[in-house]
Design a protein around this nucleic acid. Structure first.
Length: 721
DNA sequence: TCTACGACTATTTTT
DNA sequence: TAGTCGTAGA
């Protein structure tokens, strides 16, 4: 048994306080690199060892599979035995588990299927066209955003008020019809998983009571990323008695645009009683110079709980700025520096190139290629999202659940089997009129002999083939089934016919899929709740789209967006494209909330670096075929000069003291972000940020009555309260 | 059913 | 600029 004493040896004071808290609820504000996961893992061990809580009473929730896996591994490592009995998983995997176990109560068929974003998009387009609406006016992506947004807030179609507005009522109609479709086919999208689970518990008091009785200790990671429904789910399970510990960092909230609400972490204390708050501010990752820069940037955000990172580490190297002449110059500089670093004996995978948007990777790639530096780009299509994989899976899904219309639509004519638009429309019409699935409609249409001869034969062949697969295969033996599907449907031949380059990777991917089917081991939990290996595989595949099949073993320089870099760390980090309009992004510059999120993103980027940080910008850049002049990002100016070493390269050679004068207008220095001020006309408000210098200093103020205004500091005559 | 061409659009992305 | 997507026509 792990002794409690041994546990605490490895923790600092703040971590110990959090791990051993006796408050019913606790909020741990964990700065970047401050040992967030460590606290969660040790807390679990503490609950088991010191408080004698059963592993069955522990529920630990994360956002990504990666985080869940890491937590599970580290718990196993610390306890020196597998984390049995505990529920450690993502919101979605936990929801899915509850829905599978209680599908009857949730009103779902046993073999319900998950729709990923692409499936959802297709189905929404289907609905829009069924309603005879114009896609130009009802843009499927926008509608998808609307539906998911509402679901994330826990709102059903019938709960939305259209206020007599045609636009709203149409959106509601699409939402409703989309949900009808899902219900009919036993389909469930990502947002629905959470919403359904919440409703399942809410509508079944005995069930709720059971789980409330079970999970005495609930832990949530990355709490700043929770959306409305996730927060409600935790609140519901917490009930009156259970203990909740949430860990997060308000300064690293970068997903507001997809429904995450920073208010949940800020308002945690209001929602729960007996809350103790802990701050982890000692950073174990970066040099002091890097931390100072990070602190200096994030300080400009008004809406914060307030934290300041410090470390016992050395000051370290200055941060290098490089003002490039163009984006080519920037990429050339980065590639050259990377080469220098590698030449000094550092492995490439210790170096990360981080950018705001994916398109920026291309030039960097080109220049790395020129230098023969191996690299890996993260993001883009993942394994189970590839066309060929989704095609095979669509067949298998149909075998698993004949009513899966999304799967049906995908492969009814792939590979082509003479079932063109006409036949498919007939099937759709019949299905819609009779409220049955496309598969069921097909069978009826064949029986009724209303189809053209050729089409009828072909469709019957298709239907029989699916039935045949179903009858001739053991649902526990995946490899033979998948192999049979790939061959007999003609998919392999179909892809073989593509241009050689494409064909090769597609066939490789198919083999990789077969490999995955062969090596798949059904998780014990899935077995216990009676899932077939097939159902279990499909569920796992939907939840975990999978990293791209691993390439070579050479250490590669890591290229990724700032968003995907969250949670990672690298000795050497290049933040590129620090220009107004690119980062902060154009679409986020004028809205103070969005601008603050951009700044948090910058904070995330800076705090990824352990030893050495480069920040680069170009004074001109070609965007969408047009060359534009660019101003350096305001975030660069927020870092004090003394932390920075400006490298040569900028042909305009703008003197630092005019370019980066962040001694910022001493005459207005009392208007710091967060300071409460009063204006003659607009009343009281809070300073969000300052920009510009001297007499041209501008102040952005959020007034309680009049919203956000940007004022000239010289004339605004603001009074500090 | 396949190809070619024109129209359109352009952050961030996990589950 | 460049990539995606839908439609028209062979």
């Amino acid at each position: 048994m792990l002794s409690t004493h041994k546990l605490l040896i490895n923790l600092n004071e703040a971590q110990t306080a959090a791990v051993t808290t006796d408050a019913q609820h606790s909020l741990v504000l964990a700065g970047a690199g401050s040992g967030k996961t460590r606290v969660l893992v040790y807390r679990i061990a503490w609950l088991l060892a010191a408080e004698g809580i059963s592993p069955y009473a522990i529920l630990a929730v994360t956002f990504t599979n990666k985080a869940a896996a890491e937590m599970r591994n580290r718990v196993t490592e610390l306890l020196d035995k597998p984390a049995r009995g505990m529920w450690i998983g993502t919101f979605h995997s936990i929801a899915l588990r509850l829905l599978t176990m209680h599908h009857k109560e949730a009103g779902l068929p046993k073999n319900f299927q998950i729709l990923d974003s692409e499936d959802q998009y297709r189905l929404i387009r289907r609905v829009i066209s069924d309603l005879e609406l114009d896609e130009k006016q009802w843009v499927p992506r926008t509608v998808q955003g609307f539906i998911n947004g509402k679901k994330n807030e826990g709102i059903r179609a019938n709960e939305i008020d259209d206020f007599g507005d045609d636009n709203s009522s149409t959106l509601i109609k699409i939402y409703q019809q989309y949900d009808d479709h899902c219900n009919r086919g036993g389909l469930i999208d990502f947002a629905e998983m959470l919403l359904s689970t919440h409703q399942l518990l809410l509508n079944n008091p005995p069930l709720l009571e059971h789980y409330q009785g079970r999970f005495g200790a609930i832990l949530v990671d990355e709490f700043q990323d929770t959306n409305e429904i996730q927060s409600a789910f935790i609140r519901l399970l917490a009930g009156a008695k259970n203990r909740v510990m949430v860990v997060g960092d308000d300064d690293q909230s970068i997903y507001a645009w997809r429904g995450a609400k920073i208010d949940h972490i800020i308002g945690f204390k209001d929602l729960y009683s007996d809350v103790k708050q802990y701050k982890l501010e000692q950073n174990y990752r970066s040099t002091n110079t890097i931390l100072k820069a990070a602190n200096a940037v994030i300080k400009n955000n008004a809406k914060r709980l307030g934290k300041e990172l410090w470390s016992k580490q050395i000051e370290g190297d200055l941060i290098h700025y490089y003002g490039a002449y163009s984006e080519y110059d920037e990429a050339a500089f980065v590639a050259e520096e990377v080469e220098n670093i590698i030449d000094s004996g550092v492995d490439g995978d210790n170096i990360a190139l981080l950018y705001r948007s994916n398109m920026q990777s291309r030039l960097l790639e080109e220049h790395l290629l020129k230098h023969n530096i191996p690299y890996k780009v993260y993001g883009g299509l993942r394994f189970f999202e590839r066309m060929e994989i989704k095609d095979v899976l669509a067949y298998v899904r149909l075998i698993n659940n004949r009513h899966d219309d999304v799967g049906f639509e995908r492969i009814i004519n792939t590979p082509t089997r003479g079932l063109g638009a006409k036949t498919i429309n007939q099937i759709r019409n019949f299905a819609q009129i009779n409220s049955v699935s496309l598969f069921a409609a097909s069978i009826k249409l064949i029986e009724n002999k209303v189809l053209a001869n050729r089409a009828a034969t072909s469709l019957a062949g298709f239907v029989n083939m699916i039935d045949d697969f179903d009858h001739n295969h053991d649902k526990e033996q995946l490899h033979p089934l998948f192999d049979d599907v790939i061959e007999r449907t003609g998919l392999r031949d179909h892809y073989q016919k593509e241009p050689p380059e494409k064909a090769l990777t597609r066939l490789e991917n198919l083999d990789e899929l077969l490999n995955a089917a062969e090596t798949f081991v059904k998780p014990e939990e899935d077995d216990q709740i009676g899932m077939t290996a097939l159902a279990s595989f499909l569920a796992q595949v939907s939840l975990e789209a999978g990293e791209r099949s691993s390439d070579k073993d050479v250490p590669c320089v890591q290229l990724m967006t700032l968003h995907s870099a969250k949670g990672l760390e690298f000795p050497y980090v290049f933040l590129v494209g620090l220009e107004q309009g690119l980062f902060p992004h154009q679409n986020s510059m004028d809205d103070p909330e969005k601008l603050q999120e951009e700044r948090r993103l910058c904070y995330v980027g800076i705090t990824r670096a352990e030893q050495k940080l480069f920040m680069t910008y170009a004074t001109s850049r070609r965007i969408r075929g047009r060359t534009q002049g660019c101003a350096p990002s305001k975030f660069l100016q927020e870092i004090p000069n003394k932390l920075v070493d400006q490298l040569q390269g900028n042909v305009f050679n703008i003197p630092r003291n005019s370019m980066f004068d962040n001694s910022n207008s001493s005459q207005f220095s009392h208007y710091k972000p967060g300071v409460a001020v009063s204006h003659k006309i607009f009343g009281e408000g809070v300073v969000l940020e300052l920009s510009g210098q001297g007499d041209y200093t501008q102040i952005m103020v959020e007034f309680s009555q009049h919203g956000t205004k940007i004022l000239a500091a010289k004339f605004a005559k603001l009074e500090v309260l």
